[in-house]
Nucleic acid binder design. Sequence first.
DNA 1: TCTACTATGTAGAGGCTCGATATATAGAGA
DNA 2: TCTCTATATATCGAGCCTCTACATAGTAGA
Lengths: 119, 119
Amino acid sequence: MHPSADPPTVDIQSLSRSCNRLLILATLSSGPHHGYQLALELEERSGGAFRFQHGTLYPILHKLESEGLIRGDWDEESGRRRRKSYRLTAAGRQHLEAQEVGWRVFFERFFHVLGGGKP
Amino acid sequence: MHPSADPPTVDIQSLSRSCNRLLILATLSSGPHHGYQLALELEERSGGAFRFQHGTLYPILHKLESEGLIRGDWDEESGRRRRKSYRLTAAGRQHLEAQEVGWRVFFERFFHVLGGGKP
DNA sequence: TCTACTATGTAGAGGCTCGATATATAGAGA
DNA sequence: TCTCTATATATCGAGCCTCTACATAGTAGA
């Protein structure tokens, strides 16, 4: 374990990536979801503004799982295509909280510069 | 001219690109700058948080110029390497204002979802 | 002369999202 | 029964963007 993993910083070059990951983690923070439903709920929560293509969604889910931020378990129900249920891990919840702070800091700086950069 | 150019929307997949372009336009809104100085000023304005690599900066400047959002003129001063001075065009100023609204809308939606998506 | 700073520019590498495609199951309707 | 639609997961190639590194060039100072 590093002394200070997850410093609350968001850098410009990974904004999209960070944003997508955070939206997924935030949606999972209200309870387990499987991938398809996650996309539907996110679209509903955002009033249609945020939408995941599944070519985007699944690779991110696999990545988050390999990083230990979420955990996926196969649901085997008869009469159904099997599906994978993802839930937030403790590390994932920590990451979510740290990154949310990072985004707020980023926004403050961004609009500060847009407003002319005066103190 | 399209009926509604520059709709104030910011989409996730082009966040970094949009952010970089906007930071440049915002810095130019306080007066003409040449590229090198633009990067220095932006770094100063943001307290070191936002920094342009020049392999990033110059291609964006050329793109913005080709789109008519900024205009560049060569300064020819003796005893100096020649440098190009960029200024915001009217279209650039419009774009800046529209995109700033787009970013605010994006942020509201983003934190709305992060907060649980309740109305 | 060598180094450092100002100043602009390009090429290649790598990362990320998107659209398309593939696979699989269940229910509705013709 | 056959087909279409919705649910559900997964991968691949194209395209875009930024970064690192390299290339160029003038001036000032050691």
